[in-house]
Design a protein around this nucleic acid. Structure first.
Lengths: 222, 222
DNA sequence: ATATATAATTAGGTTTGCCTAAAAATATAA
DNA sequence: TTATATTTTTAGGCAAACCTAATTATATAT
């Protein structure tokens, strides 16, 4: 049985692997987990002993199939609980993360299954992130970053890369949420900031912001 | 902030104090927590340092007001989650204990409050145990043990002292649940076992069983 | 190619929470 | 009351996870 700490390491490795290919460095993991490199080295060795990660000294870690399976279950639980908190308990989407970080470690296969049923087997969490099914399969949608679009493009908001409370509050303020319709009306070449049209309002977005917004690019018949 | 282990000790002390007066012995606590006396002594000292218990070497522990407050919050969370599991997630009442033991340690005041609202501010958990409110007040009902009744008495089942899976399964088999109507039709003097009438069925109950069933004694107009 | 900088690992320590075995205190029985 | 039994505490250890400081590998720059 995995400890909470071991689960957190697996989840962190999984999330970093979603972004970059290849082995993950000790320091990158330490940063993500807000701990020190020495602690990471130690834990990685334990996980390698348990065949949950492949580890080569000085060359980083990668999840094994078993490790990925565990990680996906934790992600599944995290996202189901986030859905529960927002949809049933009136949490705002910027308040759920820390609580879900706790709830994801509850060990009860029946609980996960019954919660999934109770919630109507949702496919996406409140931030638009896909919820893995019981076998670890992710529903995948053809997502792009808003920053990849061109002037004149239309899109529908489908998720966010940064789930920090400050970013989500910023989105709330700009009235940007899941399924919000967006039209790109201008891209400033010098800093790649853009102006988008949302519900007839002109909203300015920095490159940092547009990088963190996932959209589905749609073609509009004129 | 309290660790999970500290919370479990407070809860155990609270539950034992409900049953017997006075200081609680190290060995009694060790038994309840399925650990060793030496470990208990150690933890008790930590809790005493934190002013959560009063402790006198060789004379047992008692909760302080602060300690009781913490214990009641844990009991509140435990029972709210049990209610949730049974009423919303289709758990049977004999399956909820271990999961609730985990869920009770989730730290989020908002979660507790919103869950309470979501569930309709229930007063009793699925076993008939009272759920403390946010201030630690217990709704109290005038409960007796079924074993205290006399032949001919009528009563309504209001709770159980033993929440073990085996006892709850036994109750299920006898079709005894919360609010079940019971009439005592015979008490065997030599072993204090009794025969009760439930929904026109004669059900034999050992003293052990009747000791663990709480009832509200009612007067029937004939 | 060699020196320097950066990153990773090892060494050695801490805290929490558990353990066993020995010692001390209290309770029970002759 | 004194001996015996039981309970409690103390002493000393262990594993999980963390830490800092020192060492060793690897990467970078001259």
């Amino acid at each position: 049985m995995l400890t909470q700490s071991e689960e957190n390491y697996l989840k962190a490795i999984f999330h970093i692997q979603q972004e970059v290919e290849g082995g993950i460095s000790t320091s990158r993991l330490a940063e993500k987990l807000e701990t020190k490199a020495a602690s990471v080295t130690e834990m990685i060795k334990r996980l390698a002993d348990k065949k949950l990660v492949d580890y080569q000294k000085y060359y980083g870690v990668q999840l094994t199939d078993m490790g990925r399976k565990h990680a996906l279950l934790i992600v599944r639980k995290h996202r189901l609980w986030e859905f529960f908190l927002v949809e049933r308990l009136n949490f705002n989407w910027d308040e759920v993360h820390e609580v879900a970080e706790q709830l994801e470690h509850i060990k009860s296969p029946k609980l996960v299954e019954e919660l999934d049923i109770f919630l109507g087997r949702p496919e996406y969490d409140p931030h638009g992130d896909p919820i893995p099914d019981a076998n670890g399969n992710l529903p995948k949608s053809p997502k792009k970053r808003l920053s990849q679009l061109k002037t004149g493009d239309h899109a529908i908001c489908k998720g966010f890369n940064d789930n920090s409370s400050s970013f989500l509050k910023f989105l709330d303020k700009q009235e940007i949420g899941l399924d919000t319709q967006i039209e790109v009306i201008h891209i400033e070449s010098f800093d790649e900031s853009m102006t988008v049209l949302i519900d007839k309002r002109e909203v300015p977005l920095s490159k940092t912001a547009s990088d963190n917004i996932y959209v589905e690019h749609i073609t509009v018949e004129v």
